[in-house]
């Protein structure tokens, strides 16, 4: 099968492999300690660690976009900010 139309590149491949590994990691974590560690955080409703991962990823995407639109094309700072945000989400949400 010819996959050239999908136009894979190394960076996007790394991106999707990272997501896949994150999902696998979450599955293993869930298997090791089932239940997803539900708790009520700053959003005032119950979230599990799956929700927190989703919020981290989605928020990171918006942080990157905002950085591109408002600051400039150097995304390493946006990445650093996203990591801080993700830690915040896992800690407080």
């Amino acid at each position: 099968m010819n996959l050239s139309w999908m136009a894979w590149t190394l960076p996007t491949a790394i991106f999707f492999i990272t997501i896949l590994l994150l999902l696998c990691g979450m599955a293993i974590w869930e298997y090791a300690s089932p239940g997803g560690n539900p708790r009520v955080g700053v959003l005032r409703f119950e979230t599990t660690r799956g929700d927190r991962l989703f919020l981290s990823l989605l928020g990171s995407a918006f942080i990157h976009l905002a950085w591109l639109g408002l600051v400039g094309p150097n995304l390493w700072w946006a990445l650093a900010l996203s990591v801080v945000y993700a830690i915040g989400v896992f800690r407080y949400v």
Binding site: E30, T48, G50, F54
Partner: peptide
Amino acid sequence: FLGDKHLFF
């Protein structure tokens, strides 16, 4: 089952 709610979402 594992990840059911996320799958639903």
